[in-house]
Design a binder for these strands. Sequence first.
DNA 1: AACGGCAGCAACCGCCTTTCG
DNA 2: ACGAAAGGCGGTTGCTGCCGT
Length: 196
Amino acid sequence: MDKKPCKSEDLEVRKGPWTMEEDLILMNYIANHGEGVWNTLARSAGLKRTGKSCRLRWLNYLRPDVKRGNITPEEQLLIMELHSKWGNRWSKIAKYLPGRTDNEIKNFWRTRIQKHMKQPTTSQSPSSVDHQCSTSQVSSCCVAADHAVDQMSYSSPSSFTPGTIESFDGPFAPADSNEGLWSMEDLWSMHLLNGN
DNA sequence: AACGGCAGCAACCGCCTTTCG
DNA sequence: ACGAAAGGCGGTTGCTGCCGT
């Protein structure tokens, strides 16, 4: 790897929200060179970001296969089922939801499901809801989801078909649509125009 | 129309694990 | 076998937009 000493200006590290320009630089660099050592990548690309920050941005937002918004009821059910099995192993859970990131699932769990669990309709204490409540809430659906999960454990995650699970009319409304954002398609087309 | 509170999301932080010299 | 560096992961925080008053 590149072991050049850092110049003083390289020590300056940007934090906070990513700009469109930074996104384009990162996408362009990865498109040309692939994902390498993230710290080296960040330096080589000329980004004043840490390798971790670049990796996170790429995995959670810039990757072309990232699906955004609209977590479907099937996905919600699967998340609940997998969480009841594994707890907060978000990255593990994310492997069974193609296009979803651990961060997105984690946020979804905290904002939608955990919030719902805290409502007084459940007699269980908040401290114990994490695993037990989720299991009991979806227990009627768990068998179907269980089969889906078990099947996926032996085949590729992408082989999962939502139809495996019965229709779900639980209390969780679908997430908001992602309209109004400058989409990844826009970014990618800009990237293609710029870089290739 | 203005203000305050709330919800959702993006990003950072710190710890743990893995890899490499 | 050991130490350092990098990667991976889960937890937490801060910002932004939306909704109700």
